[in-house]
Design a protein around this nucleic acid. Structure first.
Lengths: 329, 329
DNA sequence: CTGTTAGCGCTTTCAC
DNA sequence: GTGAAAGCGCTAACAG
């Protein structure tokens, strides 16, 4: 910076002002400084800048699994907005593990990030960050009561998807679900129940089957579901479980949708590539990411009222070939 | 840090040494300091640390498209190693645009990252970073001659895939490809040619069809390929183009593999979900990412001889149901 | 509008 | 093995 100042014949502080601040520098000087900086290939040091100004443009993003297209899309949406707004994304995979999550949060804290977007695993993580004065936006799910969040309306989406199946005459729909601790799973289960209730049908609790979070477990659980319950349709609570369900249906060569219907929450690309294409609920995942980033930046810039803000993104039912009229026996 | 020093009854410099350096602090003092830090919830400030020590643990990762599972897997592999080794990943999507890429590189430079892993779009980007003393590893493709790189053996993979098709009796294989400027596309094309040559068959140049990088364009190009060339098999140069090719084959209700075979470079999850599952070349993408990170860290730690290191990851042919004997007319 | 001064929080000489 | 002092590169406060 000294060099640039000398080259432009001004003081270091003027260089700083000319390069970054708006105002407080005459246009003529500003131009001269910028030319000098260009000529010398000067790149300002973010570290020093952040240290002195006690601000940072880096944003931490904490997600569970980048290889799951849901999280990849979420991260892509976040990154798009951050980049456009001149921020940087520090991305950490926590593998859904509370300890990894907390450890990552501490690192982000040490890095003095301006804010964090997290798909929380444990409530302790957003809380710790907030207690340390870091802005936090929970994306996709919500834990504890504090803080801003961007959420999909899981209940409405699951209700709509279930109504679609009920409308086709299915009464025994197996719900394949991995967790209901979080607002996502809980919401989807609630929507499933609500649709049955609205239809005036009693829901057999045995139709709700819990499985682990990976496709292989879902395949096994689907097997049990088919063996033990007489279902005419399967509703998978997310894209990963749907892989397992579909694999088992294909293994048994059950014709879809003639013999059995399959619907899945969370639209991802492969669902329109398989034959028949899968009926799903599109969560607008990239938008979910964009909104999370926008909300966080608005909070950082202090453009929002103090009380917490919850942004809800409406999901959309996408009917494709995998769901059809319930077979009559 | 002052507070911790006071709490532990030592000087700030001792706190620094006790917390981070190995040696230069008595075990007894070290323990006392750590206890004090714990009690006060002290989190050291990375910015100040990096500024003073002129080192940073942040690593920049520059990729083209996070929503493409190839890049997502690459990033996941990189992140896994970086996190394990106590580094942070700053992830930037450059959308395959040289200007975005260069802009991102400048930001990373300003952030004083310890190194950058890039799937380069233009040779200028790695060069600029290297000129500024930043360690660079090119992942997946190579541009210009400088620098370390982790590459898949595209030629071998494409050759093996083509040999597989030739072995099934296909002689007119349409190669659907988007670019050959980069080492990836060039290598795959070279492998395709080599297989024909090894088989002693003359390659009709019209079988090589160029398309844009998105699935929709690939669909249209596949249409032209089917209309204008008599092909019994299609080989798609990557996972995205394969989506377009498959969509068009399905639209025409061409039976796979009876009527036409489809093979694709770059195995991604949907390829084993569709019916029939797609024959592919698995690039071990996550490993590619892991190796890139390991190579970069080794370079940063100065564990490598000065001359550049190229790591090659061997791809693997995965034969599935989408390829079968060529139909006889 | 611009220069001077001080100092962000930490690590690293250099004495002791 | 430990403390005191200096300073990383920059920006904010203050004069002018």
């Amino acid at each position: 910076m000294q060099d640039v100042a000398r080259e432009a014949g001004v003081s270091p502080s003027t260089v700083s002002r000319a390069l970054h601040t708006r105002g407080y520098a005459s246009p003529e000087v500003r131009e001269r400084v910028q030319a000098a900086a260009q000529r010398l290939g000067y790149v300002p040091n973010h570290m020093a800048r952040n240290l002195r100004s006690r601000t940072s443009t880096a944003i931490g993003v904490l997600i569970s699994d980048l290889r799951n297209p849901f999280y990849a899309d979420l991260a892509a949406g976040i990154e798009e907005v951050l980049r456009f707004e001149g921020h940087q994304m520090i991305l950490v995979n926590d593998n859904g593990d509370p300890e990894e999550e907390m450890h990552a949060a501490e690192t982000l804290l040490a890095m003095q990030v301006a804010g964090v977007i997290v798909t929380p695993v444990a409530a302790a993580c957003p809380k710790m960050l907030q207690d340390n004065g870091i802005h936090v936006v929970s994306a996709d799910r919500q834990l504890g009561r504090g803080g801003d969040a961007v959420l999909s309306d899981n209940k409405a989406g699951a209700r709509e998807l279930t109504e679609h199946l009920l409308g086709l005459g299915h009464e025994r729909i197996g719900l394949l679900i991995d967790e209901t601790k979080w607002s996502t799973g809980a919401g989807r289960l609630a929507g499933f129940r609500a649709a049955y209730e609205d239809a005036g049908l009693e829901l057999d609790e045995d139709l709700i089957v819990f499985t682990s979070f990976d496709a292989e477990a879902a395949k096994q659980t689907t097997r049990e579901l088919l063996d033990e319950q007489h279902v005419t349709a399967i509703l998978s609570a997310n894209n990963v479980l749907a892989q397992g369900a579909l694999a088992e249906l294909k293994r048994r060569r059950l014709r879809i949708p003639n013999k059995i219907s399959l619907a899945a929450y969370d639209d991802v690309p492969w669902m329109s590539l398989v034959q028949p294409a899968i009926t799903t609920v599109d969560q607008h995942t990239v938008d979910l990411g964009r909104s999370s980033a926008q909300l966080l930046l608005a909070r950082i810039r202090d453009e929002l009222p103090a009380r917490r803000r919850i942004v809800r993104v409406a999901p959309r039912l996408v009917v494709r070939g995998s769901t059809g009229p319930a077979p009559r026996n």
